[in-house]
Amino acid sequence: MSEFYIGIMSGTSLDGVDIAFCEINNESFKLLCSASYPFDKRLKNEILSAINKPVTLKIVGELDTRLGKMYADCIESFIAKSEIDKNTIMAIGLHGQTLWHEPDSKHPFSMQLGNANVITAKTGICVVSDFRQKDIALGGQGAPFAPAFHQFLFSKLNANVAVLNIGGMANLSILGDTVTGYDTGCGNVLMDYWVSQKNGLSYDKDGEWAKSGLVNEDLLKQMLQEPYFLKEAPKSTGRELFNGKWLKKQLENFAKRNANTVYMKSRDTQATLLELTIRSIANEVKKSMAELLIVCGGGGRNVYLMKRLKDELAGVEVVLSDEVGVSSEFMEAMAFAWLAHERIHKKCVKISSVTGASKDSILGAIYE
């Protein structure tokens, strides 16, 4: 029997809030309608400040509540505009906004903010949230979770399939009898940071600025020596590693070792950052048996990035998920609607082969 769920997602790029209204049963999944809402700019800046600078518990607590209110307002607006009967919605699957993700520390944790109690109080709808902590408690990375959903959607395709999501970070799902997957590293996050610092823009539309620059192969080679890229899966990452400080250190170290070289233009740095995303992804895809790579996430809308990815993976068919009937823009929001469905029905999510957890488990907490 089909049920109706809402999935809501805001990723590490902090560029918007994606909402998907979905019809789900044990065998099939259908996206009925969807929408994106701009992320509150002041809240975005305060979240970035909290990630990059010392922060008080008061600030963290208030960010949690404010995010909950922002999500609730977006959901209420979405329901009204889409003329959805609230009484038909079984639950809202909420990822929340990742503030910090550190599954390999002495005391592993992953922190997503966005108070689910606030959302259910304002909307009157059951919320399923806090998906990552159980997996981490069982020794897993707590990420990525998308591979389980990708397996549900695409495992019946007659090909060796991999699915790539390019958001702030990039994660790869390799489908088969046993699903595997991991974060390959930075997706859009460093490119977005650099174009923001140099041009005052939130992102490099269609990769045009990167396309105008020249890749510095020596700098790229240095960046690819980042230990994360060399680490074997299971692994996951986020802004706690790939951020402005990481990039500044890379550029400073490169300048020290190449003091007599020609000054590198800002657009050349952007070109090199785009190539870092491409090479770090392609290096991992090439390790798989993938014949078909299905791409989703914001990076799929970057025309130049997609061209370079196809060039680098000449032996693999690279397509947007839209071309196989699934929205590339709302894939992650859809995934959390599906995860909410699995939690409501007390199903174990088969993700331990991805995260390295000791076993599969029921994921998420229900806020009635």
Rank of each mutant, 00 (worst) to 15 (best):
N188I: 07
I351V: 09
S36R: 01
G168D: 02
G168K: 02
L63C: 09
V319P: 02
N87K: 13
V316C: 14
R308M: 14
K44Q: 13
A143G: 11
M331D: 08
S173D: 09
G96S: 06
L48S: 06
I89D: 12
H101S: 05
A233I: 00
R257P: 00
L251Y: 07
Y228F: 15
A72P: 00
K235A: 04
D40N: 14
S10C: 12
R239D: 04
K221A: 15
W194A: 14
E208Y: 03
Y203N: 08
L63Y: 10
A143N: 05
D218H: 11
A80M: 08
K122C: 11
V354R: 01
L138Q: 02
L251G: 14
W209H: 04
S236H: 04
I24P: 03
K347T: 04
E312L: 00
A137C: 12
K350S: 15
I6W: 07
S358Q: 04
L43E: 07
I92G: 10
S352I: 00
Q270E: 12
K286W: 07
S327Q: 07
F21S: 08
T123D: 11
N199K: 11
E284Q: 15
E102W: 08
E62F: 02
L230W: 08
E102T: 09
M289Y: 10
E46P: 00
K350M: 11
K53W: 08
E284H: 13
R42P: 00
G7C: 10
T178R: 09
G356I: 04
F254T: 07
N260W: 08
E342L: 11
D73L: 06
L157Y: 10
W209S: 08
A121M: 08
K286G: 06
S280I: 05
S327P: 02
S155D: 15
V215I: 13
G93N: 03
Y263C: 13
G207Q: 03
K106W: 05
D130T: 01
T269V: 15
D177R: 02
M1F: 12
V128N: 06
G7Y: 05
N216V: 04
E342Y: 01
P144H: 04
V354T: 06
I84P: 10
A121E: 15
I281N: 01
K81D: 15
C186T: 12
L293N: 06
S196M: 09
K359Y: 06
G176I: 02
K286F: 11
T56D: 15
L214N: 14
G356P: 02
V55L: 07
L230I: 10
Y304N: 12
L63V: 07
T88P: 09
N260V: 02
N188C: 09
G325I: 00
A146G: 07
L309M: 13
N87S: 14
F109C: 04
I174N: 08
P103A: 12
A337S: 13
P54W: 08
E232Q: 15
Y203V: 01
E323K: 14
S82A: 15
Y193D: 07
L219C: 11
P108Q: 05
S10W: 10
L313F: 08
E240Y: 10
S288F: 05
K86L: 13
A290P: 00
G200I: 02
D104V: 12
A314L: 03
T65L: 13
F154N: 05
R301N: 14
P103W: 06
S353N: 10
N115I: 00
K249F: 14
E232W: 01
